[in-house]
Computed example of a mutant assay.
Amino acid sequence: MAGTKQGSKTAPTDDTPLGPTGRPYRGFATPPKLDSHGPARIISLCNQKGGVGKTTTTINLAASLASYGRKVLAVDFDPQGALSAGLGIQTHEIPTIYDLLVDSKRDPHEVIVPTRVENLDIIPANIDLSAAEVHLVNEVAREQTLSRALLKITADYDVILIDCQPSLGLLTVNALTASHGVLIPLECEFFALRGVAMLIETIDKVRDRLNPSITLDGVLATMYDARTLHSREVLERVVDAFGDDVLETVIGRTVKFPDASVSGMPITEFAPEHAAAQAYLRLARELVSRGAVA
């Protein structure tokens, strides 16, 4: 990928305080500006459990990376269209991701919609997408339909974030087949842990059969409440299970997220000084530092 060298981590010292994950809390340097843009690295935000923060993370991570000068495309791949709504996009009577899936000759540029956030575009979705799996089931190489569509626009962006629906069906397999990496938002709640093994198994199957280069970019703890023993214990178990794959950045629980969603704005613009906005900016810096994003 084109660009200058990655931002560096601040080395921890013996007196560095521990973060929520039990590791030394490190700062991540502001990413340097890129000399040029593209080709994009494609990352799916995936978890078959609903309500774990996939859409919230897609919106705010995309906006945070855009604020650091990255050209970002967010792909709404959920028939509920929450990503589109969360970025203030009206999806009635406009082409959507569904049109790209069912019409291989359609130019993806016709479906891209700019958002009010500089450097951030979106391919929207609406309820039409729910019919896509039925349409694709008889297609040749149906798992690669999204990949073929995105291939035509990767040169225009530095990162493409796919907000997956809460299932492990054909649409999610399409997203994983198209992706270089997977980011798993995981709510700090016991029942959220139960389905992760199944998701990892699905990722492994996609790696074996469809996309050998896909990697796990990280597990992101969301809806964390340090005041509760339950949250702390769940996060400890996540770190035990996934080790260094657990991102150091942790997203806390706050009512600001639904307030921002109603306003159709990322929290980084709705309440830029809020701790949640700063957490997503830190997440963007951490992913650049890890090499997951240019």
Rank of each mutant, 00 (worst) to 15 (best):
M1G: 08
K9H: 09
T16S: 14
P17K: 08
L18V: 04
G27H: 14
K33W: 11
D35M: 08
N47G: 08
N47T: 13
V52P: 01
K54W: 10
I59H: 01
N60D: 12
S67M: 13
V72K: 00
L73H: 04
F77I: 04
Q80H: 12
L87I: 07
G88N: 10
I94M: 00
L101S: 06
D103A: 13
I112Y: 04
V113C: 07
V113P: 01
P114A: 11
T115K: 03
T115S: 10
V117A: 07
E118R: 15
I123G: 00
I127L: 14
D128Q: 15
L129N: 06
A131Q: 10
A132P: 07
E133R: 08
N138W: 02
R142Q: 11
E143R: 09
T145A: 14
I153K: 04
I160H: 05
L161P: 02
S167Y: 11
L176V: 09
H180A: 09
L186W: 01
F190C: 04
L193Q: 12
G195V: 08
A197I: 03
M198Y: 08
E201K: 15
T202I: 06
R207C: 07
D208M: 14
R209V: 08
G218H: 02
A221Q: 02
L229H: 09
V234Y: 05
A241C: 10
A241W: 01
G243F: 07
G243K: 08
V246W: 01
V246Y: 01
V246L: 11
T249D: 07
G252V: 05
G252Q: 05
V255T: 14
F257H: 08
D259R: 12
V262T: 15
G264M: 12
F270V: 10
F270M: 10
Q278A: 10
L281N: 01
L281A: 05
A284D: 03
A284Y: 02
L287H: 06
V288E: 04
V288N: 03
S289E: 14
